[in-house]
């Protein structure tokens, strides 16, 4: 953490940069200024971690002594999942089972579900807790029907993911990992989801239709405006087109068509492939 004076100075400096450079350079580089990150201010007082707490706190909807079971349909899936592993290595099924439990339980796994899984795979509950806390895609506290995961890793950050997150948080009126009062949305953070070419991006985990209609879609090439549109479409129950949101881009190809590789690539100049 920088001392307060230094922090102030840094912010000033960024402010100067953005105002002078915004007209010329930035518009060419990206649809939004790099300096957007500065608007966020100090992230939080501690080092920011994307994961939630690593211990359980009792709440009315999440208590260890609650009863939790897989639904009948999912029990079949459980059997199927476990059939992939030898019977003495049932614990290999912890991750798929946690995933299934998360889909069934509206996007998050309560402790009671972890305990139930521990029973199924015949290990001590702590072994399941270890797995569930390790993987950030398992939510251990309540999330919205649509859980929006903003990528926060370097390429997306450079392309303005912090502004995307700020926009989302402001638009929905929540803090990170908080659920909107209608229970529809929550915003979380994720590390690189392998989509850097179309950065910035968010992933939307849709739990509104249970584990049958569960989807997990990427929305790429976002702008603050577009991300609000997507949220509103989701709110109306529509399905926004997934993938890149750039009007001229197709999948992850260059915007406006290919700029290179117009024809067959030239063969290597000094190598006779047939002779090799």
């Amino acid at each position: 953490m920088l001392p307060p004076a230094a922090r102030l100075a840094a912010r000033r400096l960024l402010g100067i940069c953005s105002s002078s450079a915004s007209e010329a350079a930035v518009s060419r580089l990206a649809p939004f200024p790099i300096a957007a990150a500065s608007a966020r201010g100090p992230v939080s007082s501690a080092r920011p971690f994307s994961t939630a707490l690593n211990y359980h706190i009792d709440s009315p909807e999440n208590k260890p002594d609650m009863k939790w079971e897989f639904s009948e349909a999912n029990m079949k899936k459980v059997k199927d999942i476990l059939s992939h592993y030898p019977s003495n290595y049932k614990q290999s099924g912890i991750i798929p089972l946690l995933d299934l439990a998360q889909q069934q339980h509206g996007g998050w796994v309560p402790v009671a579900a972890m305990d139930a899984i521990a029973k199924i795979v015949e290990v001590a509950p702590i072994r399941v807790y270890e797995v569930a806390t390790f993987y950030t895609m398992f939510n251990r506290t309540k999330v919205g029907k649509y859980h929006l995961l903003v990528c926060g890793t370097t390429p997306c950050m450079i392309r303005g993911s912090r502004e995307i997150e700020d926009t989302l948080l402001e638009h929905l009126g929540v803090k990170r990992n908080e659920v909107t009062s209608d229970g529809l949305f929550s915003v979380g953070e994720m590390e690189c989801m392998g989509c850097c070419v179309n950065a910035p991006m968010i992933a939307v985990a849709d739990y509104s239709k249970g584990s049958e209609g569960y989807t997990y879609n990427y929305y790429e090439d976002l702008t603050p405006k577009r991300v609000i549109e997507i949220v509103e479409m989701l709110r109306r129950g529509e399905t926004p087109p997934r993938g890149t949101q750039h009007p001229e881009r197709k999948n992850s190809g260059p915007a406006g068509g290919n700029t290179t590789l117009h024809g067959e690539p030239k063969p290597p100049p000094c190598r006779d492939l047939d002779a090799c």
């Binding site: 971690f49 211990y55 807790y129």
Partner: peptide, 14 residues
């Protein structure tokens, strides 16, 4: 519990 620099020893449920 946890991962990376957030890793800690614990019982999860107290």
């Amino acid at each position: 519990l946890g991962r990376g620099s957030g890793e800690e020893i614990g019982t999860y449920v107290e």
